[in-house]
Amino acid sequence: MTQAEGSHPAWSDGPPGRWEDGDVPTAVSLGEGTVVTGADVFKRLRSHRNPALVIGSHCTMELTQFSYGLDGYIEIGDHCLFSNAVLMSELEIRIGSHVVLGWNTYVADSDFHPLEPIARIADTIACSPIGAAAGLPRPDVVCAPVVIEDDVWVGPSCTILKGVRIGAGAFVEPGSLVSIDVPARGRVMGNPARLVGNV
């Protein structure tokens, strides 16, 4: 989209994008006409990467939380609408353009704790006040990037788990928990989500 078509007069000499509740953190890049609301949305931005969050132009992020591990990275395309979603990244979340995420939807690229019992018990000890004081290292956690392609609609109260790729134009019904890949233009629902048709 060229400058002439895309830019609204109200943005002609303002910042490219804005966060309504303060200055945009340096690790965050907002495109033209993007608006982010919510006072605490960058509270958990702990990533060492810079930039750690790239949002394209003309996106609306209403009260959408961005929660990071130390190596987290989130990239969002243009003209997206997220409301009250929570994006949790330990590795990488890539979201295309014209994507809608509904209320109370969680996207995570990690399980945050090891699946294997012995490692998980070690993790509970490392996370405890005693383990933290002793400087015990946390065991490695499996992470896998999440990719949500262009024109995907994700309903409210959905969960997108690690390693999932949702194909372009797919439709995720409200309340679904997506643990498998969704083909382009597929329609999924349920916990766990199953393919029920096409759009």
Binding site: I118, I125, I130, G131, A134, L136
Partner: peptide
């Protein structure tokens, strides 16, 4: 896993 193989907390 065998209980004996569980990690032991410090202290």
């Amino acid at each position: 896993p065998d209980r004996a193989s569980w990690p032991t907390p410090p202290g």
